[in-house]
């Protein structure tokens, strides 16, 4: 996935300025930066979720396997099936655990009960949640602990078999142990999926990602291999931010 000359506006306010970024397949890309720098906005341009917000405007291109996702006639629904998303606050639907995961396949038009059951089990296993919930599949999803809810949301995304998974501060509502579990899971998922994660947690970006992009005031200031960004940042503002002197 890549963006070229991407600008984004909320009304008259320009939230993203000329973002050029290539996201490597089957790697974890972390986007860091102070609040309001545009990293979440950028993430949401990748699956066109910003379309839901009125009075917004996009310029430039975002390509998924070479295809511009903002081209006229683009099928946004199938785009979002290819580019899944996990949100900051776990947002399971107020349904049972099973129904939450089954939602994606059902939306895709799978009706076979056996097929759906397989998909649910497979997705919950892939999200490392199966052992904890295999006996409570028909319990309300909102009864789970937050960390479990977040892994349920990941399972829900996996059930659609996306190519890319976007994560918008997936651990900010979680305790350290639950965070650790999600990070381990990301390493596992990276084998099959491209992951882009927005995070406020420097250690998380340093620990868990392969590539890091630093956003400031709507611009992508620096982008490179995570190790380089954290040890030899080229821009002094990046250095100030990651060492905690800024933002």
């Amino acid at each position: 996935m890549e963006s070229q000359g991407l600008h984004f506006y909320y009304g008259a306010f320009q939230a993203l300025k000329d973002i050029n970024l290539v996201i490597k397949a089957r790697q974890i890309t972390a986007l860091i930066g102070p609040s309001g720098c545009g990293k979440s906005t950028f993430l949401r341009t990748l699956n066109r979720l910003n379309d839901l917000i009125p009075h917004t405007r996009v310029q430039g291109t975002v390509r998924l396997e070479g295809e511009d996702i903002y081209q006229p006639g683009m099928d946004v629904v199938s785009l979002r099936q290819r580019v899944g998303m996990v949100f900051q606050r776990p947002n399971p639907f107020p349904k049972s655990i099973f129904e939450n995961v089954a939602f994606g396949p059902r939306v895709l038009g799978v009706h076979s009960k056996v097929e759906i059951e397989e998909k649910v089990e497979q997705s919950l296993k892939a999200a490392a949640l199966w052992p904890e919930v295999s006996d409570l599949l028909h319990k309300d999803a909102l009864g789970l602990a937050l960390g479990q809810q977040q892994r349920l949301c990941i399972a829900r995304v996996l059930a659609v078999e996306p190519e890319v998974i976007l994560m918008d501060e997936p651990c900010s509502a979680l305790d350290p142990l639950a965070t650790l579990k999600i990070e381990e899971l990301m390493q596992e998922l990276k084998k099959n999926y491209t992951i882009v994660i927005v995070t406020h947690n420097m250690q998380q970006a340093a620990r868990a990602s392969d590539w890091t992009g630093f956003f400031l005031l709507g611009e992508l200031l620096e982008y490179g291999v995570t190790g380089d960004i954290f040890t030899r940042p080229k821009d002094s503002r990046t250095e100030n931010y990651i060492t905690g002197r800024y933002g």
Partner: peptide, 27 residues
């Protein structure tokens, strides 16, 4: 019904119709 539940559904590739009838109405 909170916006994040709606977004969750759209982000799964659900259409407006599916979101309204399978997520919002049950919720």
């Amino acid at each position: 019904v909170p916006m994040h539940i709606r977004e969750g559904s759209y982000a799964m590739g659900a259409t407006k119709f599916q979101t309204a009838f399978k997520v919002i109405i049950p919720a």
